[in-house]
Design a protein around this nucleic acid. Structure first.
Lengths: 208, 208
DNA sequence: TTGCTTACTTAACGCCGTTAACTCACGCAT
DNA sequence: ATGCGTGAGTTAACGGCGTTAAGTAAGCAA
């Protein structure tokens, strides 16, 4: 209870739970994150958490949301650094996505790697927000296409395909599934170059 | 115990466990697969399983192995159907990989989506075997490069990058994370075309 | 017959998410 | 001042999990 007085005055136990959950997630990983641990970390009973979150999934969704916002910030920063150079922007966005995943593996796991069967369906409003991150890629493709830098059929589909490629790259790296004899940065560069090369209209153009 | 007499004579309880595990995995998914359920399914005590498998991870590895062999079969079949057409072969391999993932989601999950922290490190011999699957892609690139069909720097790296792209595609589809407004097959085709286009040396060649 | 081995079971430990029932201090109306 | 409702938090319990330690019973060898 002495401990408890550390807490911000009162009423925001919810906030405290969320902060602690984030902290434990990053420290111990998703698979070691439990309601009981979160509770004991802040000297409350496990059931207290249920006063503020319906269940573990809901708590998790709140964390996912934080992660999506962080990713949005990262991509947003990158995007405005290359405002009128779609190719460079797309390349930088790819790098930023991968780097976000590699620097925040625990967030990445809950954001993109949890199968839906183990999780309540992602609520639609949040889903929409999560998709904003994809829009950075779509816009870059769109603008690039109109400037004749890119050769794109359907930017929405292509953006998703790019995302898939980046997601695979991050996933394999996080799962340590890439051949150890392959240099990590070489692999990342190859993945990005592979992605870009598919859409860049070469100087000796494809369309006559 | 009446039930028990159904079993193959004796001694191959190990086999029975494995078959039951596979069955339950496919039926209920990885997240619902438990030692206790496997045991109760075959009317043995949960601890019996430990007479044949050191722990759940080891049992899982045995299942992963089965999956890897299945995938190998699938890719192998495809590869020999396009023996001397590296481009068509690569395209077919991509399609086969994705189709394997989508038709065997539970296998796919344990084979490629489990994070290593929740699993004992994949034993090196099995790791090597798993990598044989990647060799189909590497060979296609290799042969394609020597026939001047592909423009490849390092086939080992490129094969991994292709794999990443395919893995991302399957993962997003299985996790139902692709924009619902995008047609599933369009997405798959886009992903494959994106991958291929990065390596195909266009008729109006890139290198002068 | 005794004793060893093999194949399996029972009981238990310490985790987990979650529910139901409770306590108890505070603020308010009487 | 007294009683009461309410909100915030608790304890106890349920049924699940992986795993270990100890026990048991049948079969076989000497």
């Amino acid at each position: 209870m002495a401990v408890r007085s550390n807490n911000a005055q009162n009423g925001d136990l919810r906030r405290l739970i969320l902060d602690t959950a984030r902290h434990l997630l990053v420290q111990d990983g998703y698979s070691n994150l439990s309601m009981r641990k979160i509770a004991s970390e802040i000297d409350y009973s496990a059931t207290s958490i249920y006063l503020y979150f319906d269940n573990k999934d809901v708590l998790l969704h709140a964390l996912i949301d934080e992660g999506m916002k962080q990713l949005f910030e990262a991509l947003s920063n990158i995007a405005e650094q290359h405002e009128d150079a779609p190719l460079e922007r797309l390349e930088a966005l790819c790098g930023a996505f991968i780097s976000f995943g590699l620097s925040n593996p625990e967030y990445y796991e809950i954001m993109f790697q949890l199968r839906p069967e183990r999780m309540e369906r992602y609520p639609p409003e949040k889903y929409r927000e999560a998709r904003r991150n994809l829009d950075f890629f779509r816009s870059a493709l769109d603008e690039g296409a109109s400037q004749d830098v890119f050769d794109v059929d359907d930017p929405r589909v292509s953006a998703s395909a790019i995302w898939a490629s980046l997601h695979g790259t991050v996933s394999l790296l996080l799962a340590e599934r890439v051949d150890v004899r392959i240099d990590r940065d070489d692999f990342i560069q190859a993945a990005i170059r592979q992605t870009l090369r598919s859409y860049t209209r070469s100087a000796t153009a494809r369309h006559p």
